[in-house]
Design a protein around this nucleic acid. Structure first.
Length: 168
DNA sequence: CGCGTTTGACCCGCGC
DNA sequence: GCGCGGGTCAAACGCG
């Protein structure tokens, strides 16, 4: 996070992490998908220290299909042992996409994120960053990417819900 | 000294 | 069956 960008954003936004107010949010129709949960419902005010709460709430609020029918998952422990592990696919995790107007990609939403990967997408000259919740037992993942047409916009995609309330 | 970031390689699913 | 694209891991480095 040692980028001139950060500094620029810092001096520009001057918001620091004391309040964390959600900037303007934009959602296009293209973001509306069956598997994509777009959580943007007239949130035009600052959330202050309730930001985490908001996110938590949003998680439970928008969590719909959890697919509890995980069948009995037969043992099938005949010849396989670890190859079966990666068989856990086709699981519709809840996906929440945020399109925010900000110069900083890593907005402090009240959780600690650890970056675990960066990739250059072909459809955009901007790299895509992959984050994971640092808290143990929290399978939540975050994907941050800059908008192709408007580099000033940042697309944050959350995946899954937090196990812990939050760190704040 | 611990932890988070970084970067390249590897893996996997899908399309052709 | 191969290639492409996207996603994740893992070792090393740097910073606090």
């Amino acid at each position: 996070m040692n980028d001139a960008e950060t500094n620029l954003a810092r001096s520009s936004s001057d918001d620091t992490h004391t309040g964390f107010k959600l900037p303007e949010l934009y959602l296009s129709d293209e973001w509306m998908d069956d598997d994509l949960v777009s959580a943007v419902t007239g949130m035009n005010h600052s959330y202050g220290d309730d930001a985490a709460a908001f996110f938590s709430g949003s998680s439970s609020c928008f969590s719909h299909h959890e697919s509890p029918s995980t069948n009995a998952s037969p043992p099938a422990a005949s010849t396989v042992q670890e190859n079966q592990i990666k068989k856990e696919k086709k699981k519709v995790k809840e996906r929440v996409a945020f399109k925010t107007r900000s110069e900083v990609e890593v907005l402090d939403d009240g959780f600690k994120w650890r970056k675990y990967g960066k990739k250059m997408v072909k459809n955009s000259p901007n790299p895509r960053n992959y984050f994971k919740c640092s808290v143990d037992g929290c399978p939540v993942k975050k994907r941050v990417e800059r908008d192709r047409d408007d580099p000033s916009f940042v697309i944050t995609t959350y995946e899954g819900s937090h196990n812990h309330s939050s760190m704040n």
